[in-house]
Design a protein around this nucleic acid. Structure first.
Length: 592
RNA sequence: GGGGUCGUAGUUCAGCUGGUUAGAACGCCGGCCUGUCACGCCGGAGGUCGCGAGUUCGAGUCUCGUCGGCCCCGCCA
């Protein structure tokens, strides 16, 4: 290439008219009029029109005849103003064009499988197979640039707050608890495996013991679990940890970071502090630990109303220690039987065995179940739910866990279906006071809700843990906090345990024996014994954060080379089998 | 592990209760065209109907299996 680029395609403006410019890029489209040829030239900055006129430059006009979409070229020429009747008001460079005097075709291109523009509708399959072409599309470039800006601004703020960016190992040890690990065989130590980190959790705590005081990292994390639109096997966290700090310091810092990001990248200003809500309240009112507070449809507790009900389904739920709750859909009485049945079927996805309902039409209660209610129950129901004409009441009765899952999911679906969500709203929410432990019925033991290094809530001290024989129960609260935006968990963190004796007790409560704890986490407990400062931290899901800012539902859109739902890369065909020799070198044999 | 949905030309899709030679748009190729910017006009090529069985006189269409994309449940400290 003998010509040197003078600026990007999207940059030339009226004030540049008369300048000699050299532009590089891809042919976005070509319009050959037999005589004059127009070429829209595209690069990451935008599009500008090139003009090839046979009278102006016969040579370059002749070469331009061979151009096709996505050919790569460099063109030299004079920028000139377009005549008033040929100005294109739809493009930023629409008042100018480059009169090409010299053209060099740098590379040809096969026809693209899909148009390189924002309008082309392409299946995910094709996009991922030709990801390098998908990423040529302006909206994808915008998303990647947005991601870059989030990283840049985060580093900027954290640097200015005295945080040090430190890298932690990608090859680390497998630990119990948590997600499945991605394993990496060791050639040097045959039969042993590294694990890719699920998060840098232990290392950042060790950095606090080291006295780094404030750490951050834009860290890749790996979890070998099944995928969703918002879950990839490898994903990125903005991970941070602070010494001599508690939950308030971390929440204030992260709140400031999020406010800055949304202000600078989305033009959204948040003046008030983000609201906070204890876990128990979130579950009771919204049926979720990451409630979307942009709309109502809150859960109403009817357990007491139906404690002795003649309606067996409700009575049995209450007698079994469960709950009866309901949501009220304003105007929902107009729904058809099929619409309600569809909601019931959706509810069953979340464990509901059935979904009772009442339509209130002109004072009449239409329902398959009302006949089982006593007059007192009906009256109490009307009071608690503040029923009005046109309402639809949807019930769930089961264990509290199922009731919350069902109604929590229903309220979100109904809000989306009925367009109850104001798309301009961004509701941040801190959820706090999580339970320390939850019961895992499959393994018949307690496990940490957050992770086993989480400190107890200050009001639920170590003495409470001590006083519980025969299991820690689920009433103990931890000093953990999640940041939620519009019902999406953007991140979470906690105050960590910094005393070795307490850490040992928590392992014990989790049923991790002394021996196992020593083997798997001994290095952490040992480190805590060498003057670990109190510390706390948090990690933000970068992919989800950028997706929210970009306004897309899928984090694949903000990851350059994502995996499919089956955890494969359609571009490189990873994962793949490997040579027998490669396996032998690692001391491995595939046994399928 | 389970449920749902989709798979037809390069792309996005249509293709009815099974029935002659599988269509459209865009793209692509060729020709014409000196001010277009969704350029226009004329002509043309292009199909393993994901794959494999089965039912049938006959399958893009029905059945079963399988592979793949997406969404969800379980799972994800």
């Amino acid at each position: 290439m003998k010509l040197e680029r003078s600026c990007y395609c999207g940059e030339p403006r009226e004030q540049d008219v008369g300048k000699e410019l050299v532009l590089c890029g891809w042919v976005h489209s070509r319009r050959d009029h037999g005589g004059v040829i127009f070429v829209d030239l595209r690069d990451r900055s935008g599009i500008v029109q090139l003009v090839f006129n046979p009278e102006h430059s016969p040579q370059s006009h002749a070469s331009a005849g061979a151009l096709r979409n996505e050919y790569v070229l460099v063109a030299r020429g004079q920028l000139r103003a377009r005549s008033d009747d040929t100005v294109n008001p739809n493009m930023p460079t629409g008042k100018v064009e480059l009169m090409v005097g010299e053209l060099e075709i740098l590379n040809a291109s096969r026809p693209s499988p899909f148009a390189i523009d924002d309008e082309a509708v392409v299946t995910e399959n094709t996009r991922l197979k030709f990801r390098y072409l998908d990423l040529r599309r302006p909206f994808m470039q915008k998303f990647l640039r947005l991601r870059h800006e989030v990283c840049r601004l985060s580093r900027e703020l954290l640097n200015s707050e005295g945080f040090l960016e430190v890298e932690t190992p990608m090859l680390t040890r497998s630990t119990p608890e948590g997600a499945r690990d991605y394993l990496v065989p060791s050639r040097v130590n045959q039969g042993s495996f590294f694990a890719l980190p699920q998060s840098p959790q232990l290392f950042k705590q060790l950095l606090m013991v080291s006295g780094l005081d404030r750490y951050y990292q834009i860290a890749r994390c790996f979890r070998d679990e099944d995928l969703r639109a918002d879950r990839q096997p490898e994903f990125t966290q903005i991970d941070l940890e602070m010494s001599f700090a508690g939950s308030e310091a971390v929440m204030n810092l992260v709140e400031g970071l999020l406010k800055k990001l949304f202000s600078e990248l989305a033009g959204l200003e948040f003046n008030a502090a983000f609201p906070r809500m204890p876990y128990a309240e979130a579950m009771a009112r919204f049926g979720s630990d990451r409630p979307d507070t942009r709309f109502g449809l809150e859960l109403k507790d009817l357990t007491e109303v139906f404690a002795g009900s003649g309606f067996k389904v409700f009575k049995q739920a209450v007698d079994g220690g469960g709950a009866v709750k309901a949501i009220v859909v304003k105007g929902g009485a107009a729904m058809s039987r099929k619409e309600i049945d569809d909601l019931g079927s959706y509810a069953s996805d979340f464990g509901a065995k059935g979904m009772a309902w009442i339509k209130i039409n002109e004072g009449q209660w239409q329902s398959p179940i009302v006949k089982f209610f006593s007059d007192g129950e009906k009256q109490r129901l009307g009071e608690v739910l503040e029923i009005e004409d046109g309402d639809l009441v949807l019930f769930a009765s089961d264990s509290e866990q199922v009731v919350h899952a069902v109604l929590g999911a229903l309220r979100c679906k109904i809000a989306a279906d009925r367009d109850l969500i104001d798309p301009s709203r961004f509701d941040f929410l801190w959820v706090t006071e999580f339970p320390m432990f939850e019961w895992n019925d499959d393994d018949k033991r307690y496990q940490a809700l957050h992770h086993p290094f989480t400190a107890l809530h200050p009001d639920d001290g170590i003495e409470v843990l001590d006083s519980l024989s025969g299991g820690p129960g689920t009433a103990l609260r931890s000093d953990a906090y999640d940041i939620v935006l519009n019902g999406v968990e953007l991140g979470g963190g906690s105050v960590r345990i910094h005393q070795p004796q307490l850490q040992r007790k928590v392992f014990e409560a989790l049923g991790i024996g002394e021996e196992e704890a020593a083997e798997k986490f001994g290095f952490l407990v040992e480190a805590l014994g060498y003057g670990a400062p109190p510390h706390a931290g948090l990690a933000l899901g970068l992919d989800r954060l950028v997706a929210m800012l970009a306004g897309t539902d899928s984090i694949r859109d903000v990851i350059a080379f994502p995996k499919t739902q089956r955890a494969a890369c359609l571009l490189t065909q990873a994962p793949s089998t490997v040579d027998a020799a490669q396996l032998r070198g690692l001391g491995l044999r595939v046994d399928l």
